[in-house]
Amino acid sequence: MLVGWERQQKSRLLSEATIEPRIALLRRFTEFAGSFPWEWNAGDVEDFTVSLMSGGARLAPSTIRGYHLTLRMFCDYLLDGRYGWTAECEHRFGAIPSQVCHDFNTVAHLSEYEGRPGRRPFTYDELQHLFDFLDTRVERVQRSGRKGAWAALRDAQMIKTCYAYGLRRRELCNLDVADLRPNPHMRQWGRYGAVHVRYGKGVRGGTPRRRTVLTVPEFDWAVDGLRQWVEQARPLLEPGTRDALWLTERGQRISVKTMDHRFAWLREQAGLDADLSLHCLRHSYVTHLIEFGYPERFVTEQVGHSYASTTAIYTSVSNDFKTKTLKAALARVYESTEER
């Protein structure tokens, strides 16, 4: 059954990163239920859900809903008459599979955003503090004469690039030098006028989507940083034919997990809120583009969203922006009233 369902998903061109966790979940659920798929019942799902919500490692609602969806899809596959599993189970075991997931024992999708409430965009002051800390750290390590100045510069530039182009973590770590593209309208930026993203988030487990993120004038400071990294710092490692933009000291592409750990440590050293993750820089990018006055459609295409409603989830205008907007509105309304 598992082999057949895996083959069906591969026929849909789903990636291994999507298929493997699904198969692992089914094995985990089978072990938890202590029975085979043709013996599962709705109570097994409910007991499994309760176990996921117990203890200190309670899972997020979105994760549990994903588990329910996987179980539902697998049962749909078993009940599909084109694959013959119902007849096979009845012939061999005198029992047939059933759909164990229904509307009354699975998590409903009630809200657009289900992330942690503490997750939010960085304020301008927090961004300035973080970037100042990163720059000071590079200078301090370099003056001390200890190893690590090169890695400190890499970390600083990765974090700044993540914000300046609104990248996801996987998109950031999978950048190659060849992904840095010129913008013919801004020749002074050289090859740093745009970033070509080849590992964007796929739709429904499909292949990664591509997009080109243009450098915007408000973030043109990122151009000098990328130029310093590509033309001065990165060659010190003698990468040879390796194309990865961000390398470790051993010459390997830096992983998402490693970058998460690096950012968490740097955030702690900088004394910032523990709820601020690397992905929050992407939220900040969307928020600040909106505040700068960029059209919603432009922002949506920059960050690779399919729908403007998804972009709206990331938007949280700052208090300064709200204050300026309110002052402008008050002036517009009350000045016109006084004139009359």
Rank of each mutant, 00 (worst) to 15 (best):
V3P: 00
V3Y: 01
G4M: 02
W5F: 15
R12F: 08
A17D: 06
T18N: 14
I19E: 06
E20D: 10
R22D: 09
L25Q: 11
L26F: 08
E31K: 14
A33M: 00
A42W: 01
D44F: 11
D47K: 14
V50W: 02
S51L: 04
L52S: 08
R72L: 13
M73V: 02
M73I: 00
Y77E: 07
L78Q: 08
L79V: 04
R82L: 08
T86K: 15
E90S: 15
G94P: 07
Q99K: 02
V100M: 06
H102L: 01
N105F: 02
Y113H: 11
E114G: 12
P117C: 01
R119C: 07
R120V: 10
P121H: 09
F122L: 12
Y124R: 14
E126T: 09
H129A: 14
F131Y: 03
E139W: 02
V141F: 05
S144P: 04
G145Y: 10
K147I: 13
A149G: 06
A151P: 00
A151C: 02
A151S: 15
A156W: 01
A156R: 15
M158D: 11
K160I: 13
K160A: 15
C162F: 03
R170G: 09
C173E: 00
D176P: 00
D176I: 01
V177Q: 01
V177E: 10
V195L: 12
G200S: 07
G200C: 05
G202S: 05
G206W: 03
R209W: 00
R210H: 05
D224Y: 02
D224M: 06
Q232G: 03
A233D: 01
A233R: 07
R234N: 05
E238L: 08
D243Y: 01
T248W: 04
I254M: 14
T258S: 15
M259E: 04
R262L: 14
D275E: 09
C280I: 09
L281W: 03
S284R: 05
Y285D: 10
L289A: 09
L289D: 06
L289V: 10
Y294S: 09
P295H: 06
P295A: 09
R297K: 10
R297E: 07
R297Y: 06
F298W: 03
V299E: 07
T300Y: 00
E301I: 12
S309V: 08
I313L: 11
Y314D: 04
N319Y: 05
Y334L: 11
E335P: 00
R340A: 13
